[in-house]
Design a binder for these strands. Structure first.
Length: 879
DNA sequence: GACCTCACG
DNA sequence: ACGTACGTGAGGTCT
């Protein structure tokens, strides 16, 4: 068996990784995605091929002779984006740390070096594999030299493999003839001119027929078609130059040592350190535990499983300034508790025997009277431990969320790395795999106790640093005065839940089913066949191929059948309106009728979870089920709200802010005209229309009002003429004119929005009125799309976020005041600008007053905060 | 698990 | 030239 050498085209693979993968950044904001992708593909190939030798070729930055000659002739390559450029030294550093050979040579391209080493190795009788993203390398393929080209197709990486035979099969020419093809076709990215009028088809024909450009030129009269003949005649010089440029030099004077290219263990301590710094978590798992141990701190955990031991421990804990606590539990039961007194006293207390969950939770409740409880997620703990005051607790997850709201989760291992000097801790998955807590407890898995310890350790250790950073970033008040009290408010809402009439929900679903079946039959008849209407793919084929409706491909994978597309198609064919109705009904049935039915608790109420660390802007979100998207816009859907009811003796009071985001905009921008408008107008959209279109208020047409409303929304979303034109089905030009008129009418708005973008670019983040931050890394992107997105985000987030801050403040005040006044009414839902209160009938007047006062008084703005309030025996009536 | 579609503010 | 409105969560299909 012959030896094998793997040659990697460094820049090309880095490039591929950069464009094929989402952009990753570490905590320092360094871009790392391309390096990560490079390593992944490299290790994948290494595992497949198991080569004895490995080397990675890089171009040196100076232009090389092949390009120099042509670049003098015409233009230069387009520049590398900064996000990629900064990763070039990084990958070299990583490869060096892994002891992997790097080759480059002044005056030669990476291609040339790959070609040179490939030929030399082949001559030695080795098998050669070249890994590149560049098809030019195909000219090097032989029976012993394999060219492997990774391709990313819809997120999945597949690799195309080429020996001579595969090249022949795919291109109908031999590998060396690939040069001839390229010389004819040209390649703008490589600055190879080619000859005009010859593309892939013609070039292939020519080379298959004549074998080479020279031979074709000699038999010029036989060259077909005429256009190619003339072009070759006229540009023969160019073709020969192109050929020279396209030829990879396989005989460069490279000093190459096989000894140095020998594959050793790449998982070195240096590489481990670097992976750690770059936050390549998955990569770290590949390292030998011994290597990892050198680098990570040893933590010692103790187990306490007897009553007197626990008593002593809590006694001691009460004397500390703060303790770390974790409560590992599911909905029903507690399985293990973690307790940290200081960095050397880390305990796990497994539930069992006399140490019941209730007992331990009571101990924690008492402990909270004496010291501060630090935990990853206080609201989760509240499901078992009755803490009542924000002053008793520190919530590490919320602190970390405020510091960076863009993360998808806030786990102890991530936080240790970010806030405890890069400390590497095992993640939950490493400790428990996919095992549930219950199962882990039943099987007495070691990982369970360790997980309890880590979960208590990190918030304990990170508290100081997190608070310091909250102070530093000006978000301490947001944390103390908004988010931390909100934990208790939301916990109360989750616990109360909202009553739902299960029977009515069921019969609503059944009614839908009847109509859905009718529609299904009708649609199949109209289509002339049975198919799955829920499948956009099948539906697209029916509509656009079988029935021949107009409309091109819209999405990456096929035809778009989204509602706005179908709306426009409705006049073309009756099937379209039926499909739209079918869609609407099946949505109501599956998501709402069935979906809500499945999550009604034993108490007949639905207990949603309100997530406080999800959104980028500061809003809360609602899951399992989502109660923030219950239908309201269409009457049929809106009827679902009738099944949400207060318990006997109670009614619903529903209060929503009137256009809170526009009012926030008026305040933050300080635009006197808009502020004045709010002081006068009952109907802001109407007034906007009147001012923008210069017509008297009572002559505003419905269309003008609609347009003005859309512009108002657009402003809040980070206006773009394209977006507005989509929304209003008008041309971009008209949309741009509306926007311009709007800015003329309210002159300070434009300055305000521009300022947000400018500040966002300068500081890397934007802020709400209360100091909440949203980082906007997209603003620095070299990609137009990403950057434009960043600009819209910079305009929208301070507005949406400030509105979110305001209603959070109102919720806290309403909750606290009802508690203080000993009322039995309770806050049950928040829907971004709306609060729903299950109100004791005797308390209606008082609760109305509280809602009104606390909602309008949550913030002092230059315009009034206006609240609409309704009462009803179900949510439908109260809205 | 990605993608599409659609419900809400 | 690029190809979009901002923020979410859930259910369905298809690979």
């Amino acid at each position: 068996m012959s030896e094998k050498i793997l040659l990697i085209d460094g820049h090309s693979i880095l490039n591929r990784a950069f464009y094929g993968l989402p952009d990753l950044t570490n905590a320092e904001g360094r871009h790392t995605g391309a390096v990560y992708g490079f390593l992944n593909i490299m290790f994948r190939i290494m595992e497949e091929e198991k080569p004895e030798y490995l080397t990675v070729a890089f171009d040196l930055s100076a232009p090389t002779f092949r390009h120099k000659r042509y670049e003098a002739y015409k233009g230069t390559r387009k520049p590398m984006p900064e996000e990629l450029r900064e990763q070039v030294p990084l990958i070299k550093e990583m490869l060096s740390a892994m002891g992997i050979n790097i080759m480059s040579l002044e005056g030669y391209e990476a291609d040339d070096l790959l070609g040179t080493v490939a030929r030399r190795s082949e001559a030695k009788g080795m098998d050669v594999t070249i890994l590149s993203g560049d098809r030019d390398l195909l000219q090097l393929a032989t029976d012993k030299v394999l060219i492997r080209l990774p391709k990313t197709v819809r997120g999945k990486t597949t690799i195309e493999n080429y020996h001579t035979a595969e090249v022949l099969e795919k291109y109908q020419v031999t590998p060396p003839q690939i040069i001839e093809l390229k010389a004819l076709m040209g390649d703008s990215s490589d600055n190879i001119p080619g000859i005009p009028g010859v593309g892939e088809k013609t070039a292939t024909k020519m080379i298959v027929q004549f074998g080479s450009i020279e031979n074709a030129h000699e038999h010029l009269e036989e060259v077909k078609p005429n256009k190619a003949k003339e072009s070759l005649r006229e540009h023969y010089d160019m073709a020969q130059l192109s050929k020279e440029l396209a030829t990879i030099n396989t005989d460069s004077p490279l000093e190459f040592s096989y000894e140095k290219a020998k594959v050793e263990n790449p998982y070195t301590p240096e590489a481990y350190e670097l992976c750690k710094r770059l936050e390549f978590k998955n990569m770290l798992n590949r390292f030998d535990p011994a290597t990892a141990a050198d680098s990570s701190m040893e933590l010692e955990f103790f187990t306490c499983n007897d009553l007197s031991g626990v008593e002593a421990l809590f006694e001691k804990a009460g004397k500390k300034d703060q303790v770390g606590i974790s409560v590992l539990a599911d909905q029903e039961e507690v399985y293990s508790v973690g307790l940290v007194l200081d960095e050397n006293e880390i305990y796990q207390i497994p539930v069992g025997g006399l140490l019941t969950g209730e007992y331990l939770c009571t101990k924690i409740e008492k402990l909270a009277q004496e010291t501060v409880i630090c935990a990853m997620d206080i609201k989760a703990a509240l499901k078992h431990v009755a803490l009542t005051k924000p002053e008793q607790v520190f919530d590490a997850g919320i602190a970390a969320y405020l510091l960076n709201p863009l993360k998808s989760s806030y786990t102890h291992d991530d936080m240790a790395r970010e806030y405890l000097n890069g400390m590497m801790l095992p993640a939950k998955e490493d400790l428990l795999g996919k095992t549930s807590l219950k199962k882990a407890w039943e099987d007495e898995m070691e990982g369970l106790g360790n997980y309890a310890c880590y979960q208590a350790f990190v918030p304990y250790m990170a508290r100081e640093e997190l608070l310091r950073r909250l102070d530093e970033t000006g978000m301490r008040k947001v944390y103390d005065e908004i988010e931390l009290p909100l934990v208790f408010t939301l916990d109360s809402m989750e616990k109360w839940g909202i009553a739902v009439k299960g029977e009515e929900l069921k019969s609503y679903g059944e009614k839908l089913s009847v109509r859905i079946q009718e529609l299904e039959k009708t649609i199949w008849q109209e289509a002339g066949e049975e198919f799955n209407i829920n499948s956009p793919k099948q539906l697209g084929v029916i509509l656009f191929e079988k029935l021949g409706l107009p409309g091109g491909k819209k999405t990456k994978t096929g035809y778009s059948t989204a509602a706005d597309i179908l709306d426009k198609l409705a006049p073309e064919h009756v099937i379209v309106k039926d499909i739209l109705e079918y869609r609407q009904l099946t949505k109501l049935k599956s998501t709402y009728a069935d979906g809500l039915g499945n999550v009604i608790g034993k108490d007949g109420r639905i207990h949603s979870t309100f997530n406080q660390t999800i959104t980028a802007t500061g809003r809360i979100s609602s899951t399992e089920p989502n109660l923030q998207n219950i239908p309201v816009r269409m009457e049929l859907g809106r009827l679902i709200r009738k099944v949400f009811v207060p318990e006997d003796g109670y009614v619903f009071l529903d209060a929503d802010y009137s256009q809170i985001e526009l009012r926030v905009l008026a305040h933050m921008s300080g635009d006197e005209k808009l502020i004045q408008a709010y002081r006068e107008a009952e109907d802001i959209h109407r007034l906007t229309a009147s001012q923008v279109f210069h017509v008297p208020l009572d002559e505003v047409t419905p269309l003008q009002r609609r347009n003005a409303k859309a512009v108002n929304f657009g402003i809040v979303y980070g206006i773009s003429s394209f977006g507005l034109s989509q929304d209003l089905s008008i041309t971009r030009k008209e949309a741009a004119a509306y926007i311009e008129k709007y800015f003329e009418t309210y002159p300070k708005i434009k300055g305000f929005l521009d300022g947000l973008v400018k500040d966002g670019k300068e500081y890397g983040y934007v802020t709400t009125m209360f100091g909440r931050r949203r980082p906007v890394p997209e603003l620095k992107s070299s990609n137009f799309m990403q950057r434009s997105f960043g600009e819209r985000v910079a305009m929208n987030s301070p507005i949406q976020g400030t509105a979110a801050d305001i209603i959070k403040i109102a919720m806290n005040h309403v909750y606290e005041r009802m508690k203080k006044e000993g009322l039995q009414s309770r806050l049950v839902l928040q829907v971004h600008d709306e609060l729903l209160i299950e109100t004791k009938k005797e308390e209606i007047e008082e609760v109305s007053r509280i809602l009104e006062e606390e909602m309008t008084g949550a913030a002092e703005l230059k315009v009034e905060l206006d609240v609409d309030m309704h009462q009803g025996d179900n949510w439908y009536e109260a809205k």
